[in-house]
């Protein structure tokens, strides 16, 4: 009896199949389109927004009208313009936090999973330390220590996401480090860093990409939450969380004020959620998703 060689399928063919599965998921495509629209709004906000988001030129608390499509806030600022500019804060926080989380967590997990022994023990205890503190509390502490600001906000949310990336990468690495194609790479003289980066990392990327989307989705909510508490994006820069905080005081006078930033937040999180789900389907081939398989050690 002959055994099939333990090598992954050619990457281009796998990617094409995954892309097909992603496109077949209509909700995932809708999520991707929605996110692209949001990204375009954020990118071209100064061109698209009808008013300067900080200009206090209008009458306060106007309802939706021809002049101000979504009305004005308590200081007479155009709500639509603030929503459009507010997309920047949310998407930058989402992308930044995911990058920070992956930037620290993936190398940590790769080292722990591939090298094992004391490196694994030390890395995982570090991760345990981070996991011992609830994410929002950790972000609050970091913001209080470093002070509010966009960069500190991204750092705070990103550091909270490190454990997930580290654990996910470690488990995925453990699953393939003794497979033939990794051993072959070692046998052909590749150094340890080279093997980790060129052979192992490309083969554990799928769950990491999904985790990136999940983290981005979480970051949007945490950014809004911290800004709602007054510790996120500082005024007068618009942020959906900040708008919700302001609107809370004027629910009686202008009920629609709080509705719009809330809807934007829900829409963004839904888009990211749908993309994440689509990616899971794409990489798992329709079976139990890869992230679940990996995080549960294959026992689904």
């Amino acid at each position: 009896m002959t055994t099939a060689p333990d090598v992954p399928a050619p990457a281009p063919r796998r990617r094409l199949a995954s892309l097909r599965r992603f496109i077949r998921s209509r909700s995932a495509v809708a999520g991707a389109v929605g996110l692209l629209v949001l990204a375009a709004l954020a990118l071209f906000a100064p061109l698209i927004a009808p008013f300067d988001p900080a200009a206090q030129d209008g009458e306060p608390l106007l309802g939706p009208s021809g002049a101000h499509l979504l009305g004005t806030d308590q200081l007479g600022r155009d709500i639509l313009s603030r929503l459009i500019h507010g997309a920047r804060a949310s998407l930058i926080a989402a992308a930044g936090a995911a990058a920070v989380g992956a930037g620290i967590g993936v190398p940590l997990g790769l080292l722990a999973g591939y090298l094992g022994r004391w490196v694994d023990a030390v890395a995982m205890r570090l991760v345990d330390l981070l996991l011992a503190v609830p994410g929002i509390l950790l972000a609050l502490v970091i913001i209080v220590v470093l002070g509010p600001g966009r960069l500190n906000l991204i750092l705070a949310i990103g550091i909270g996401a490190v454990p997930e990336f580290a654990r996910l990468t470690r488990v995925a690495t453990l699953g393939i480090r003794d497979r033939d194609f990794v051993l072959a790479a070692r046998g052909m003289g590749a150094s340890t860093p080279d093997t980790m980066v060129r052979t192992v990392l490309p083969n554990v990327l799928a769950p990491i990409v999904i985790q990136l989307v999940v983290t981005a989705s979480m970051a949007v909510v945490v950014e809004a939450g911290l800004t709602f508490l007054g510790l996120g994006t500082p005024p007068p820069a618009p942020s959906w969380g900040g708008m919700l905080q302001d609107a809370r005081s004027y629910l009686y006078q202008s009920p629609s004020y709080g509705l719009f930033p809330g809807l934007c937040l829900v829409a963004t999180v839904l888009c990211l959620d749908r993309i994440g789900r689509g990616l899971q389907l794409a990489v798992s081939g329709g079976g139990p998703n890869v992230a679940t398989r990996i995080t549960t050690g294959g026992a689904v």
């Binding site: 900080a54 200009a55 206090q56 308590q74 200081l75 209080v144 002070g147 509010p148 007054g230 510790l231 500082p234 005024p235 007068p236 302001d246």
Partner: peptide, 25 residues
Amino acid sequence: AVSTLEIIQADLKKIGFELEIAPQE
């Protein structure tokens, strides 16, 4: 007080003075 400062901030901007608001716990 944050909203009060936002009003002051917007008026100061008109005369060329940049007031940054730093909310804290």
